[in-house]
């Protein structure tokens, strides 16, 4: 099969999952009902199901791209926004906004979340520079420690100010609350993630390291900074809109890398499509497995993702450095 045919097949699969996602849920929406123009079916479809499906596709694609971008510019296969302090810092930023300016529009909260996310990532990199690292596995471990500390601080703040409930919305990826008018920011996140494809060659060159990138005439520092800014922005958008989706940015780029390599020009479309497909599948699973109750997508993803991740480490740890 040619590369184009494979991509077409993958797109068809994701489209199928997206269509299935529209007809899964507590309230029955049937194709016949929609075709007959029944008001209630239309209402659920337009106000809830379509926004949820789009939110899944957009957040899945964006987070997977953010993971790939982070791995390339930090030059470590095992980092992603959820284990580098980025996501937790974004959550802290959102909490601070809730406490300081609860009436601020969601885009302002997102902007502050993104600024915190960038600062958290910068802190992560500053720690990495001071630790002599021999083993690439230490990098995500340090990131997990930092994430843990940030999360503990955030929880403490939320506890003291009695907003733990709100915190849960960001720490656990959950799309049951997605409605029309409450997910549109994700389009912005996806557009920003699209920059990773636009500047793909620059990022791949930066991923060759400071020396090679400089020899090729690229300002390594600037490209890495741009890459991490994109990661921070995408992370903040996803966290504020649907919450934390762990492992996605880790396993999708790693699987695509095994098959296709890391030339970002080629990898980004595949990472985006696979990310969207995986999140759609996890969400459908979470909604059907013990219907009418729902298991949040973040939980399903955490379970499936950690299993896949373990397999990847055991199979590929040798070359993963």
């Amino acid at each position: 099969m040619s590369a184009r045919a494979r991509m077409a097949a993958a797109l068809a699969l994701v489209a199928g999952l997206a269509a299935a996602s529209l007809f899964v849920g507590v309230s029955d929406v049937s194709l016949s009902g929609i075709l007959q123009g029944q008001d209630r079916d239309w209402l659920v479809l337009v106000e809830s199901r379509i926004p949820r499906m789009l939110a899944l596709v957009l957040s899945g694609a964006s987070m997977a791209i953010a993971g790939l971008l982070m791995q390339i510019v930090i030059r470590n296969r095992f980092v992603e926004p959820s284990n580098a302090g980025t996501m937790e810092a974004a959550g802290l930023g959102l909490l601070v906004m809730t406490l300081v300016a609860p009436a601020a529009p969601v885009i302002a909260k997102m902007a502050v979340g993104a600024a915190f996310a960038l600062a958290g990532t910068a802190l992560f990199l500053a720690i990495l520079r001071r630790v002599p690292l021999r083993d690439p596995m230490l990098v995500p471990l340090i990131g997990l420690l930092l994430s843990g500390v940030l999360y503990a601080g955030t929880s403490f703040l939320a506890y003291r100010f009695d907003v733990l409930q709100g915190l849960l919305a960001w720490t656990q990826g959950d799309l049951s609350g997605v409605l029309r008018g409450r997910y549109e920011l994700l389009w912005l996140g996806a557009a920003v993630a699209g920059l990773a494809w636009f500047a793909a060659d620059r990022f791949t060159v930066a991923g060759l390291g400071h020396d090679v990138a400089s020899s090729l005439g690229l300002s390594h520092r600037r490209v890495v900074a741009l890459g991490l800014a994109i990661v921070a922005l995408v992370t903040a958008v996803v966290v504020v809109s649907v919450g934390r989706i762990p492992f996605l940015g880790l396993i999708v780029p790693n699987i695509v890398s095994l098959a296709l390599g890391d030339n970002m020009r080629r990898a980004v479309p595949w990472v985006a499509v696979s990310g969207a497909g995986l999140v759609l599948a996890c969400d459908i699973l979470g909604r059907t497995i013990r219907a009418p109750y729902e298991i949040p997508v973040g939980t399903v993803m955490g379970l499936i993702g950690s299993a896949i991740f373990l397999v990847l480490i055991l199979r590929g740890g040798r070359r993963a450095a």
């Binding site: 390339i72 791949t204 991923g207 400089s214 020899s215 005439g217 890391d262 030339n263």
Partner: peptide, 30 residues
């Protein structure tokens, strides 16, 4: 400017540790 110099002078350091998976041809392409 870095790009200007990169068309006149290239360097290969001793240690070239690659994290990204690229093919030989892709590396040449860069």
């Amino acid at each position: 400017p870095g790009a200007e110099l990169a068309r006149r002078l290239a360097i290969l350091r001793q240690e070239n540790h690659l994290v990204a998976r690229l093919t030989v041809r892709e590396l040449g392409g860069f």
